[in-house]
Simulated scan of single mutants.
Amino acid sequence: MIRILTMTFFILLLSVISSKGQTDFRVMSYNVENLFDTEDNPLTADEEFLPSGNRHWTGGRFYHKLQQVAKVITAAGEWSTPALVGLCEVENDSVLVRLLHQTPLRLQHYRYCMTHGEDTRGINVALLYQRDKFRYLGHAEQPVRFTRKQHKHTRNILHVWGEVLTGDRLDIFVCHFPSRYGGEKESEPDRFDAARTLRSLCDSVYALHPTPHILIMGDFNDTPDDISIRQILDAHPFPIRWASVPDSMRIESQTDRHPFLRLCNLFAERKTHPSGSHKYQGEWSQLDQIIVSSALADTTAAMHLVPGSARIFSPPFLLTKDKTWRGERPFRSYYGFKYEGGYSDHLPIIADFLLSK
C-alpha cells in the first residue's frame, strides 16, 4: 500500500511539472584532482602518475578513481545526473572515454569535448553533456594570452556552444586558471591574463549575440573577491547591485558595458558550509565558481537560474577528518604522497536552471 501511494505521489508530481512546461537543468563543476591514465606521454611531465612513478599510479588505482568520479557525478544529480558537467584536471580523451563507458555513467549517455592544450603536466578541461538536454553545435579552445611570459604553458579555455530545449543558444566556458604555485602574489599576473582572455571571449559572444546566455565554470585559483574575478572578468555577486559597485572596482570599459553583458558570480558573498570548495593549510577558499550572464539570471526568461540553487555539493562521503588543521577536509585521492583512495582535493559545485517550454 505504501509503495502504491509513493508511486502515485511521484506520478502526480511529474504531471504538475509537465503541466507547467518546465524542465530542470542542473550544471556541475568539479576539479577531479589528477585524473591521469597509466600510460606515459613523452611530451608531458606525467611521470608521477605511472605505475613506476613515486605515486605508484596503478591500473587498479586508476579504475578506482574513475568509479569515484562517476559516483560523485551521479550523486550530485540527485533525481537525475546533471545536464552539464565541467571537469578540471583530466589528462586526455582516453581517460574520458573510460569514465563514460567503464563506469555507471555509461547508462547516462553523456558525450564530451575537451581541450588539448600545452599544460606542462598534460592536464586539460572538459565538458560532459547530455544530448537530450543540450544540442551540441560546436566547440573551440583558446590559449591564454600572456603579457609577461610569452611561452608560458597552461590550460586552454574551452568554449562550447549549443542549444537547450527552449531553443536558446547557450555559450559555455570551462576554465582552469593558472595555479598559485610559486606564491599567490607572484603568480597573480598570470591569472590576470587568463581573466582578460576569458573576458575577451565573452565580449566576442556578445558582439554576435546581443542577448547572450553565457555560462562560465571551473577552477579559477582565485576567490570571487580577487582582482582577476571581480575587476578584470567583471563578475559581481548575484544579483548585481550595479549602482553600489564603487568606481575603484570597475575597469575602463565597464561604464559603457551593456547590462546584458554583465556577469553574475553565483558563489560570491555566499555563506555556506563548508565555507569553500578547497582547503589549504586549514583555510577554506572558494576557488571553484559558476558565473552567468545577466540574461540567465533573469527569472522571467525562458531559461533562467533557480535563485538560491547554487551551492557546494558536500555530502559526508566527500569529507574526512582533518587531523592536521582540525575540522574536516576533502577526502582526496592523495594527501601529499600518501594514497587515500578518496575523491578529490576540491568539492564540486552545482547550480540549477529552469527551462520553460
Rank of each mutant, 00 (worst) to 15 (best):
Q150M: 00
H151E: 10
K152I: 02
R155G: 02
V160D: 04
D171G: 08
H176G: 08
S179E: 01
R180L: 03
Y181Q: 01
E184M: 13
K185A: 15
S187C: 08
S187V: 02
E188H: 14
D190Q: 14
R191W: 06
A195C: 07
T197P: 00
T197M: 11
T197E: 07
R199L: 15
S200Y: 08
S200G: 14
Y206T: 01
A207V: 00
A207T: 00
P210C: 00
P210T: 01
H213M: 00
F220S: 09
P224R: 00
D225H: 14
D225V: 06
I227K: 14
S228R: 08
S228L: 07
S228N: 10
S228I: 09
I229L: 13
Q231N: 15
I232M: 09
L233S: 11
L233D: 06
A235D: 02
A235M: 09
H236A: 05
P239T: 00
R241S: 13
R241A: 15
A243Y: 10
S244M: 13
V245I: 15
P246A: 13
P246H: 13
P246K: 14
S248I: 12
S248D: 14
M249H: 12
M249P: 03
I251S: 12
T255I: 05
R257W: 05
F260R: 07
R262V: 07
L263R: 04
L263Y: 03
C264R: 02
C264L: 12
N265C: 11
L266S: 04
L266I: 10
A268T: 07
K271T: 13
P274M: 05
S277T: 14
S277W: 04
K279T: 00
Q281T: 02
